[in-house]
Write a protein that binds this DNA or RNA. Structure first.
Lengths: 120, 120
DNA sequence: CTCAATGCAAACATTTTGCAAAGAC
DNA sequence: GTCTTTGCAAAATGTTTGCATTGAG
């Protein structure tokens, strides 16, 4: 998993486990799962993970959230309770996307806002 | 435009004009266009505009940006120079979106990442 | 043994709040 | 004249940096 010159410290492993436990967590939530790791280290480690592409940084309106960069998926955000969930089927129609002349598409993200089942 | 109990102060008009001048600006950019308005007022006014739905708040990875809530469009973000541009044609396939059982869709946003024409 | 990684404290940036004065209606 | 809005200063919040120490390789 790591081996490109990065050291596998206990702190990094702990943060990785925290990330694996749940999707799209805030920095505080991650830190709460490994309180013995210094807050500064959490910041730096998440920065590092983002840079090497292991972690995706999201911004859904309430500050940064982090999740392991695994399968392609998007997010449903409930306007009323703020809960976030994922869905797998990507609703992007590729034919309608490659019309953007002069822009080379690398990736995309989709956020869907509305009301979740609990709030209906 | 306003008349639902909100006062049309010179500050609010100035901020509205600043917003009209350019899309997806940061709070600092908006404030720079009307320096005589107190920074606190810019914060409060943008909050107000967001609440009443006149302004859309974006978060594209580099802090909040604001734009007038006009025609439905999405954003292209260049990974290399960070420039942001809009595109009109929505690439969402509605058929693939209403499959989300138990979630009532109200709106959505799409961000496309890649390289702009200048950076290719 | 060496150099990257950590943790503390302090610096820094950003956003929010309290309150008196000003101004829109 | 009333009640909202403004602006200042201060507080709260969130993030980054400097530097000595620790520990993985």
């Amino acid at each position: 998993m790591k081996g490109r010159g990065y050291k596998a410290t206990p702190q990094r492993v702990a943060i990785l486990e925290a990330l694996a436990a749940e999707q799209h967590q805030s920095l505080d939530e991650i830190h709460a799962k490994c309180p013995h790791v210094g807050l500064v280290t959490v910041y730096r480690t998440l920065d590092l993970f983002s840079e090497i592409g292991a972690v995706r940084r999201l911004d859904l309106g309430d500050g940064s959230r982090y999740e392991l960069a695994e399968a392609h998926h998007h997010h449903l955000i409930c306007d009323s309770c703020g809960s976030i969930s994922e869905f797998e089927g990507c609703p992007i129609d590729p034919e309608r996307l490659d019309v953007e002349g002069g822009f080379e598409v690398r990736s995309h993200s989709v956020e869907v806002y509305g009301n979740c089942a609990e709030c209906l």
